[in-house]
Simulated assay, not measured.
Amino acid sequence: MLSDLLMWNKIGRIITILSERLDIPSERAFDLFYSSKTNERLHDPKTMLYLFSDWYISDEVINEMRSE
């Protein structure tokens, strides 16, 4: 599992990617990410999602959002 500092950095990068790709404010991207199932999976060490790239994880959030 990543240390808290590394996880916060990763989440920050994911939120920045979401903000840019969806052309939304960072605050909205933050809310979108933190309310997603992808966020839950990222914090679950059994899924090992934290090993995937920031772009891949942002794709997961966008796909999840589109399927709702």
Rank of each mutant, 00 (worst) to 15 (best):
S26A: 14
P25S: 07
L22G: 01
S67V: 11
Y56N: 04
T16D: 11
I24F: 04
Y50E: 14
D31A: 13
W8R: 07
I14P: 00
S19F: 10
L6M: 11
S19K: 05
I15N: 01
M1Q: 15
R21Q: 07
N9W: 13
I14L: 00
M1E: 12
L42N: 01
R28I: 11
R13I: 10
I17T: 06
L5A: 12
E60D: 06
N63F: 09
M7C: 09
I24M: 14
L42F: 09
P45C: 12
L22R: 02
L51F: 06
E27N: 11
H43L: 12
P25M: 11
G12V: 00
F30Y: 15
E60I: 12
K46W: 06
R21T: 03
Y56H: 09
E40T: 13
N39M: 13
L6R: 10
K46Q: 06
F52T: 13
I17K: 01
F30C: 12
E64T: 09
S36M: 10
T16R: 14
S26P: 02
H43F: 05
F33L: 15
D44Y: 15
L42I: 05
N63G: 05
T16S: 11
R13Y: 00
D23W: 05
Y34P: 07
A29Q: 02
A29R: 00
R28E: 15
P25V: 13
N9S: 06
N39R: 08
L5N: 01
N39K: 10
M48R: 14
R13E: 09
S26Y: 08
I15K: 02
S53I: 00
N39P: 03
N63R: 05
I15A: 03
S58C: 02
T38Q: 08
G12H: 07
E27M: 06
L22K: 02
L2I: 07
V61Q: 00
S19M: 11
M7T: 08
W8N: 06
T38F: 07
S26M: 08
I62D: 04
L42M: 08
P45F: 10
D4V: 13
E20W: 04
Y50N: 12
R41P: 03
S3W: 03
R13W: 00
M65D: 05
S36V: 07
I11H: 01
L51D: 03
D44E: 15
W55L: 12
P25C: 09
M7R: 14
P45G: 09
S3Q: 11
E64H: 10
F52A: 13
G12E: 10
Y34E: 14
L51M: 10
A29F: 01
D31Y: 10
M48N: 11
E27D: 14
L6W: 08
D44R: 15
L49N: 13
S36P: 09
L18P: 02
D31E: 15
K46D: 07
L5V: 15
D59P: 04
F33M: 09
L5D: 05
L18I: 08
L49C: 04
Y50D: 12
I62V: 08
F33G: 01
